[in-house]
């Protein structure tokens, strides 16, 4: 399945999901029907390209977009 999807298309799809809410890669992998290990690599590429970002609860970690991260941090840092 993974081979059939064009990588760029997949990246675009991932970003669309990330724009909705912060995700765990394992949940995205199930929805996109991609092996988690492969998705880990693609998500890491997106992070390196500045298109995705980590958000951490301290104990667990999520993936989101840099814009969403900024929005979340602004919301929660406010009074």
């Amino acid at each position: 399945m993974a081979e059939e999807i064009n990588k760029e298309e997949l990246k675009q799809k991932i970003i669309e999901y990330l724009q909705k809410k912060p995700w765990q890669v394992r949940d995205l992998a199930k929805i996109l029907r991609v092996k988690k290990k492969e998705l880990d690599k693609i998500v890491q590429e997106l992070i390196n390209e500045g298109k995705a970002a980590y958000w951490s609860s301290g104990s667990t970690t999520y993936i989101t977009t840099p814009e969403k991260l900024k929005e979340m941090e602004e919301k929660r840092s406010g009074v």
């Binding site: 912060p22 999520y62 929660r76 406010g78």
Partner: peptide, 10 residues
């Protein structure tokens, strides 16, 4: 301030 699905999942 919150994002509901991830709050529920936490």
């Amino acid at each position: 301030t919150c994002e509901i699905p991830s709050t529920v999942a936490a």
